[in-house]
Computed example of a mutant assay.
Amino acid sequence: MKSNPLLSLAPWIVFTLAAGNGVAAQWSAALAALVALAAAVPSLLTGRPKLLDAMGIATFAALSALAFAGGHGAQAFVTDHGRTVATGALAALIFLTLPVLPFTEQYAREEAPRIVWNTPAFKKTNRLFSAAWGGVFALMTLAHLLASTAPHNTGLDVVCNWIVPIVAVQQMFTFMKRYRARQSAPRTA
Results as ranks from 00 to 15, higher is better:
151 P>R: 12
75 Q>H: 10
41 V>N: 02
41 V>Q: 03
30 A>G: 02
152 H>G: 12
89 A>H: 00
105 E>I: 02
115 I>M: 09
142 L>E: 07
150 A>K: 15
160 C>Y: 08
84 T>D: 04
170 Q>C: 13
58 A>I: 15
67 A>Q: 08
133 W>D: 10
176 M>V: 15
22 G>E: 10
85 V>Q: 05
173 F>K: 08
138 A>P: 01
107 Y>W: 11
76 A>I: 09
141 T>Y: 10
14 V>M: 04
127 R>Y: 07
121 A>W: 08
101 L>V: 12
45 L>K: 15
67 A>S: 14
159 V>A: 14
58 A>L: 15
178 R>G: 01
187 R>P: 00
5 P>D: 01
180 R>S: 14
159 V>G: 12
49 P>M: 06
28 S>D: 06
28 S>M: 07
151 P>C: 13
8 S>F: 00
101 L>W: 06
110 E>H: 05
113 P>W: 03
45 L>P: 01
39 A>I: 05
31 L>T: 10
161 N>E: 14
173 F>N: 12
7 L>D: 00
179 Y>E: 13
141 T>N: 08
51 L>M: 12
84 T>F: 08
94 I>Y: 03
38 A>Y: 08
128 L>W: 05
140 M>E: 10
183 Q>T: 08
148 S>G: 09
174 T>H: 11
20 G>F: 04
18 A>T: 07
113 P>A: 06
49 P>N: 06
174 T>W: 14
104 T>E: 11
148 S>K: 06
10 A>K: 00
68 F>I: 07
27 W>R: 04
42 P>L: 08
89 A>P: 00
117 W>H: 15
26 Q>I: 03
40 A>T: 06
128 L>M: 12
99 P>G: 09
135 G>P: 03
27 W>A: 10
171 Q>W: 14
8 S>T: 01
173 F>P: 07
57 I>K: 09
99 P>M: 06
130 S>H: 09
111 E>A: 04
66 L>G: 06
103 F>G: 03
155 G>Q: 12
126 N>H: 13
119 T>R: 04
147 A>Y: 10
132 A>V: 14
137 F>H: 11
22 G>Y: 05
76 A>F: 03
82 G>L: 09
90 L>F: 04
13 I>H: 00
78 V>I: 13
19 A>W: 00
83 R>H: 04
90 L>W: 02
109 R>V: 02
152 H>I: 07
188 T>P: 04
71 G>T: 08
2 K>Y: 00
67 A>R: 05
28 S>I: 03
113 P>C: 01
